[in-house]
Computed example of a mutant assay.
Amino acid sequence: MKYTQLGRTGLKVSRLVLGTMNFGPQTDETDSHAIMDAALGAGINFFDTANVYGWGENKGRTEEIIGSWFAKGGGRRDKVVLATKVYGNMAADGEAWPNHDKLSALNIRRAVDASLKRLGTDHIDLYQVHRPGHDTDVSETLGALTDLVRQGKVRYIGSSSYSGSQIVEAQWISRERHLERFVTEQPPYSILVRGIEEDVLPTVRRHGMGTLTYSPLSGGWLSGRYRKNAGEGPASAARPQARFDMSTPANQRKLDAVEQLAVLAEKAGLSLIELAVAFVINHPGVTSAIIGPRTMEQLEAFLPAADITLSSDVLDAIDEIVAPGVTVNPVDNSYGDFELRTDQRRR
């Protein structure tokens, strides 16, 4: 496993991050522990989670599974750079309590203590805001996060799914008001979702931040699961219509791209998964790619990509299939969309 510096921090992190979103809802505790053991054994020292993972009635369950794994001992906690997130509503299902979500100082203080308890640890290495807080002044959010760092509950703070302008605003406020600064950004990035190349990646690099990209397989599109004439069923709650309806022109373009990428991967002697993940971590602006295995087999399919360097010819061929800065289906972007919502447009 290769390691790199996490932005301007002193942390050394693996090029692959173990994403844990499947732990609980799809992968039971025993199998989740086995995957974490295998990931650590393979050299992955960076685990990413969120307080809402587990979803529905089981929100928080993923953090509990990680906490029970830490409790097994063997120096597990000291070997792992632990990242979690705050934003989603943690009130019980069916309850609509205000102030139990998003990025107010009140919710952040409540949420971090709950995460620490579930994780069974006295500190979080990287505490990230899961989404921009459009209804909370960013100075309030940064002030609350700064307090957590000074209290020793959190070591570093980061953002997720921020647009370039939101990254700049947060960095400016941190310097202007002498607050802790976001040291990382977590955006979506894959061969099919290259929108961050245009603005987010250059902005993050200018500010010396680490970039932890998620969904390198673009929600499974680059796993080989979705192919032409594969007869996939209709979209569901887990597979939103706009992203997975195979009949739409945008998703037909994704299918065309996947077919071409599969041929390219075979010529390069790689699996489609290896090509997809290697593409992400080969970008000089990317620190690490978050992988989200549901099974041990999926983890094993991801691991070889950490040691693959793609040639210029292969990268050029990828650019011919999906041009730099292009997201094939724009709905796959999950950052900076607030300004384009219907109620924010001029009409």
Score class of each variant (00 low, 15 high):
residue 110 R to A: 13
residue 116 L to H: 05
residue 168 V to A: 14
residue 132 P to V: 00
residue 142 L to R: 14
residue 114 A to D: 13
residue 144 A to S: 14
residue 172 W to D: 15
residue 149 V to A: 10
residue 118 R to S: 10
residue 154 V to N: 09
residue 135 D to G: 00
residue 133 G to E: 02
residue 145 L to M: 13
residue 130 H to Y: 08
residue 126 L to C: 06
residue 134 H to E: 08
residue 135 D to T: 09
residue 140 E to Q: 05
residue 158 G to K: 03
residue 115 S to F: 07
residue 132 P to I: 00
residue 130 H to V: 13
residue 169 E to D: 04
residue 141 T to W: 05
residue 155 R to F: 12
residue 134 H to Y: 15
residue 151 Q to Y: 14
residue 160 S to Q: 14
residue 149 V to E: 06
residue 172 W to H: 15
residue 115 S to E: 10
residue 175 R to C: 01
residue 132 P to F: 02
residue 141 T to Y: 01
residue 129 V to N: 12
residue 173 I to M: 07
residue 160 S to L: 06
residue 123 H to G: 07
residue 155 R to C: 09
residue 173 I to K: 07
residue 129 V to W: 06
residue 162 Y to K: 00
residue 138 V to W: 04
residue 162 Y to V: 01
residue 162 Y to E: 03
residue 159 S to M: 14
residue 125 D to Q: 04
residue 116 L to R: 09
residue 171 Q to F: 04
residue 134 H to I: 03
residue 173 I to Y: 03
residue 145 L to F: 08
residue 170 A to I: 00
residue 117 K to L: 12
residue 111 A to N: 09
residue 153 K to Y: 13
residue 127 Y to N: 03
residue 109 R to V: 09
residue 154 V to C: 06
residue 127 Y to E: 10
residue 135 D to L: 06
residue 160 S to M: 08
residue 128 Q to A: 01
residue 128 Q to E: 02
residue 147 D to E: 12
residue 160 S to Y: 04
residue 156 Y to H: 15
residue 138 V to P: 05
residue 157 I to T: 09
residue 153 K to P: 15
residue 136 T to F: 10
residue 150 R to T: 10
residue 136 T to W: 04
residue 136 T to E: 03
residue 161 S to M: 07
residue 127 Y to M: 09
residue 169 E to N: 05
residue 154 V to K: 10
residue 120 G to P: 09
residue 173 I to E: 08
residue 123 H to W: 15
residue 131 R to K: 02
residue 125 D to V: 07
residue 161 S to C: 11
residue 150 R to Y: 05
residue 168 V to Y: 13
residue 147 D to A: 15
residue 114 A to H: 05
residue 110 R to W: 14
residue 130 H to D: 06
residue 119 L to F: 03
residue 166 Q to R: 02
residue 173 I to R: 14
residue 128 Q to K: 01
residue 160 S to F: 05
residue 148 L to R: 11
residue 143 G to Q: 01
residue 165 S to E: 12
residue 162 Y to Q: 04
residue 126 L to W: 04
residue 121 T to H: 09
residue 148 L to S: 10
residue 125 D to N: 06
residue 111 A to D: 11
residue 167 I to M: 07
residue 121 T to M: 06
residue 161 S to G: 01
residue 128 Q to P: 00
residue 134 H to Q: 08
residue 133 G to R: 00
residue 158 G to H: 07
residue 124 I to W: 11
residue 163 S to D: 12
residue 135 D to W: 05
residue 145 L to V: 05
residue 129 V to D: 12
residue 140 E to L: 08
residue 169 E to L: 13
residue 164 G to Q: 05
residue 153 K to E: 06
residue 110 R to H: 15
residue 165 S to W: 08
residue 171 Q to G: 02
residue 137 D to G: 10
residue 132 P to R: 02
residue 134 H to N: 11
residue 174 S to H: 01
residue 113 D to E: 15
residue 149 V to R: 15
residue 167 I to W: 00
residue 143 G to M: 03
residue 123 H to D: 12
residue 131 R to C: 01
residue 111 A to K: 12
residue 161 S to E: 14
residue 163 S to M: 06
residue 153 K to I: 15
residue 130 H to F: 05
residue 118 R to P: 04
residue 170 A to L: 01
residue 149 V to F: 07
residue 112 V to P: 12
residue 160 S to G: 13
residue 162 Y to I: 04
residue 158 G to D: 03
residue 114 A to M: 13
residue 121 T to F: 05
residue 147 D to P: 03
residue 112 V to F: 11
residue 130 H to E: 06
residue 141 T to I: 01
residue 130 H to P: 08
residue 110 R to M: 14
